[in-house]
Design a protein around this nucleic acid. Structure first.
Lengths: 197, 197
DNA sequence: CCGAAATGAAACATGAGCGTCCTAAAAAAC
DNA sequence: GTTTTTTAGGACGCTCATGTTTCATTTCGG
């Protein structure tokens, strides 16, 4: 009861609402629903016709973003090549979806809107595939053995966060931020940082 | 009208409220004020006696955290030594204050609670002293010339963010996270990453 | 121990966002 | 061009956090 069984028209408005929800709620999780609606170019009542609750909206958004994340994970093909190369491909894929994945960098880290609003629930998403790739990288000598797989994953997201906010915060362009982010990421993770072109 | 002219008793409750405010509101900026009060072990009316508005509370918190940040900046003595060493000292000082500086890593980045709640207001705090140190590091050959000063600063905060959340997200200890964070930071920024012990 | 200061607890009015519902208008499908 | 679908634009009651006020109680200072 989430996506199919919708007319083409409905699918587009639904998609617009999800996009708007990500844009608005990523910057201010407590923003009124009316703001999401107007951002989507839609009346508040219409939003409510597609998503009953605010929780229903956030759940749908999370589902949507998760799908995008899974797609990135799939295309990165983490089981291929050295561990470092896998994480490099992953970071590149994730960067191409930063506008959507901002959802994971904003409210999801703090509120984790799905279930509860409680404090200290498991923030972020420790993905086993990423942990495996990092562990493999440490084993195959491509990733710095002084780093733990958990840190590697956390660090990847940290760099993505910076790459996403740096353009707005300081005055650098998106491409500048991304290239420097990739360089910083690889140098930090590599067992042999000098080999980073 | 902010801190002095307070009895010792009042100073302690005020400090407790600020601490509680940081703890609670950093994780959920839209948390009820009653939650802040109870966290401080104080009645909601008492909180309101110290801070009229919610904006007054957040402003006082920001002032308090900013003071702590300035102190870290002072102790780091950014004008001393190479640029990379300066940033290293800065990161260490900031890490010792992560519990307080979490305020800058959470709501302040998104809501920037002081003035408006609008979107795309200047997120974060581009500090000229840090930019200068980074620029000096690039000039003196200690910092990777492929990185811009703006990115260096953004990256420092990014790593701090990760060091703060990694323990909760994955299962690593605080000391693990901090040591790996420092290593990652230095390797990424250094012009000669191999020289990082 | 006693006056002053500080707090706890509760009641209260207010406003904002939410969720529901309804009707006329617009847009799409045929 | 007509029918069906989808939307806009409200009105409405509800909940909840907020901010204010008052009064009894506790704690502090000398």
């Amino acid at each position: 009861m989430s996506e199919r069984d919708l007319s083409p028209t409905q699918q587009r408005t639904r998609a617009a609402l999800l996009r708007a929800g990500i844009e608005v709620l990523s910057n201010d999780p407590s923003a009124p629903l009316g703001e999401v609606a107007s951002r989507a170019g839609v009346a508040r009542s219409t939003l409510h016709r597609y998503f009953a609750d605010k929780t229903a909206l956030t759940a749908a958004i999370t589902e949507f973003v998760t799908a995008e994340h899974d797609d990135a994970l799939h295309r990165a093909d983490l089981t291929e090549g050295t561990g470092l190369d896998a994480l490099r491909r992953l970071a590149l894929e994730l960067m191409d979806r930063l506008d959507v994945l901002a959802w994971f960098l904003g409210p999801a880290l703090l509120v984790e809107g799905l279930h509860s609003g409680s404090i200290d629930d498991m923030t972020g998403e420790p993905d086993p595939a990423v942990l495996d790739a990092a562990a493999r990288g440490i084993a195959d000598g491509s990733i710095d053995p002084a780093l733990s797989p958990q840190w590697c994953e956390s660090f990847v997201w940290s760099v993505l966060f910076s790459a996403n906010h740096a353009p707005a915060a300081s005055g650098m362009t998106t491409t500048e931020a991304r290239s420097q982010a990739m360089r910083s990421l690889l140098k930090a993770l590599a067992a042999d940082p000098a080999a980073v072109r």
